[in-house]
Each structure stands twice: as structure tokens, then as C-alpha cells.
């Protein structure tokens, strides 16, 4: 296979994991986070540093990278998820900035602005593709469980959700930790795919790119998010857009969607697997 196509497939898959990682948080629970790329950064850096500086094996780096994201999510989520939704969004934006600042400051460990290099190349094409597919499946199962339903209820009406026994804060925490760990996993894959990291890879533009993809596909549709990620990552590559032009294209698309099709490309529609049908017919009986 052509190298260019191979790298396109792999970056698209990693993006896909990123976008799918914010689906439960932003799409379903209605918490707009503009700093989830910070978790990707943490996952990438923790695993990368462990591999480069301590020579740990890949699987251990992966595990610790993802776990450290979960830990950070607990620390950050505990105070911020108690705040109003728009304050949470703001704090998530600041979190992204803060993480970049810390990465730049502690250059002796992270490589600072010059970057961290010599990470072994462990993310192979099959691993990345399988990861993307599995992540989508996990999130789909999340959506179809009681957790997905609670998320949607919280998004629709927090006060009513509380009146029916849902511990809103605890649920938001669970979702936040879950999604942050997936973002961290995307980060680990990314680190071991690029073999090189620098803090600018994880700025707020990447976080907002994820939100934009999600919004474009339809905030309530996982299928829509997957499709829009693929379209919006591959299209600019084929058209060979400069990065600013690409962002202009994204933003114009979002404005069109918001103005004329506020539910996104697919709204609430999902690609259904036949298993669901039995469930549906049983409902009628």
C-alpha cells in the first residue's frame, strides 16, 4: 500500500477514536469540552516518557498512560463538573492551555517545545484500525445502556433527571473519566505512531476540531460522528488544503449546520444492527 494512503488511514482512525471519545460527554451528556485533547496529550506524554526514559514495554506504557488520564479526570472533574455547563466548557478550554503550559515548562522531562522524540514505533496499522473499531463498539454499547439513557436525560433536563433518582454529578464524573481514558488511549496510539511529540499537537484547535466533527455529524448520532470524522479528515487531505483553509472550511460547515440543520447531518439517526429488531418487536407485544 502507498505510504501516503496508509498514513491517512491511520491518522483518520486516531482522530476517529478522539471524536468518538467525546461523544458520550459532549454529544450525549451535553457537556461541551474544549480541552479533551489535553487528555490525549497526557496519554501520549506519559506513555512516551515511560518508553523513552525508562524503557518500559509498550503494553505497560499503554496501561499507565490510560490510567493517568483517568486519574487526571478524577482530579479535574471533581471540581469542574459541579459548575454550570458554560463554566465547565470554559474551564475545559483553560485545562487545555494549562496542560500545554506544564508540558512546555518541564522541558527536562517532556522535551519542552523542542518535543519528545525516539519513541519506539509500536502502533501498527492493524492495531490502530482494530482500536478504532473496538472504541466505536464500546461507545455504541454505552449509548444503548442505562448509562447512555441517563446521559440523554441529564442533557434534556437536569432537574427532572434528579427527580428520578439520578445522581447527576456522579454520572457526569463516570462519563468524564470514561471519555478521558479513551482520549488518553488515542494519545498513546498517537505517540507510538508518530514516534515524536510536541505540545502544539494537542492545542485547543484539536479539541475544538473534535467538537466540530461531532456537531457536524449530529450530536445525538454516533453513526453521524463516525461519518463526519471520516469525511472531514479525508476531504481536506484530498483537496490538499492548507491548515487554515481547512479550519475555515470546518467552521463554515458548522455555521451552515447550526443555521440550517441544527441537528447535524444525521440528527438522531443511527445505523442499526439487526439484533435491535427483536428488541423492538418485543416492545410491541
Amino acid at each position: 500500500m502507498n505510504d501516503y494512503i496508509a498514513s491517512l488511514i491511520q491518522t483518520t482512525c486516531i482522530s476517529l477514536i478522539g471524536v468518538v471519545s467525546i461523544f458520550p460527554l459532549t454529544g450525549m451528556t451535553g457537556l461541551f469540552s474544549f480541552g479533551q485533547a489535553a487528555y490525549m496529550a497526557v496519554g501520549a506524554y506519559v506513555s512516551g516518557i515511560l518508553a523513552v526514559k525508562l524503557g518500559m514495554p509498550f503494553w505497560l506504557c499503554l496501561l499507565l498512560g490510560v490510567l493517568s488520564c483517568g486519574l487526571l479526570a478524577i482530579i479535574i472533574g471533581y471540581p469542574t463538573l459541579k459548575l454550570r455547563k458554560d463554566y465547565f466548557s470554559l474551564m475545559s478550554l483553560c485545562l487545555g492551555e494549562a496542560v500545554t503550559a506544564v508540558l512546555n515548562k518541564f522541558g527536562t522531562i517532556t522535551g519542552g517545545a523542542a518535543g519528545l522524540s525516539n519513541i519506539p514505533k509500536k502502533s501498527t496499522m492493524p492495531l490502530i484500525i482494530i482500536s478504532a473499531v473496538v472504541t466505536v463498539a464500546l461507545v455504541a454499547l454505552f449509548k444503548n445502556s442505562r448509562f447512555g439513557r441517563m446521559s440523554l436525560a441529564i442533557k434534556a433536563d437536569e432537574l427532572a433527571a434528579k427527580s428520578f433518582g439520578i445522581n447527576v454529578f456522579a454520572h457526569k464524573m463516570k462519563v468524564y473519566i470514561f471519555t478521558s481514558m479513551i482520549a488518553g488511549y488515542a494519545g498513546v496510539l498517537y505517540a507510538f505512531y508518530l514516534t515524536y511529540l510536541d505540545p502544539n499537537l494537542f492545542g485547543w484547535t484539536r479539541s475544538s476540531e473534535w467538537v466540530i466533527f461531532l456537531f457536524f455529524g449530529g450530536v445525538n448520532s454516533l453513526t453521524g460522528s463516525v461519518l463526519s470524522t471520516i469525511i472531514l479528515t479525508v476531504l481536506p487531505e484530498i483537496l490538499r488544503f492548507a491548515s487554515s483553509a481547512r479550519i475555515v472550511m470546518y467552521t463554515v460547515l458548522i455555521l451552515l449546520v447550526i443555521n440550517f440543520k441544527p441537528n447535524g447531518l444525521l440528527g438522531e439517526k443511527e445505523l442499526r444492527i439487526p439484533v435491535r429488531k427483536q428488541f423492538r418487536t418485543r416492545t410491541r407485544g
Binding site: 451535553g30 461541551f32 474544549f34 455547563k85 458554560d86 466548557s89 484547535t205 475544538s208 467538537v211 466540530i212 456537531f215 492548507a242 487554515s244 483553509a245 479550519i247 475555515v248 467552521t251 463554515v252 458548522i254 455555521l255 447550526i258 441544527p262
Partner: peptide
Amino acid sequence: IFYFVSSITCGILFMNILTL
């Protein structure tokens, strides 16, 4: 939340048009 997303999007749009 739509206003919020719309405003962030517009901010990014203006800045990137300027970059172009």
C-alpha cells in the same frame, strides 16, 4: 449551548480568514 458553539466557531473562522 448552540449560541456558545456558534460563537466559538465564528471566532475561529474570523481568525483563520485573517491567517489566510
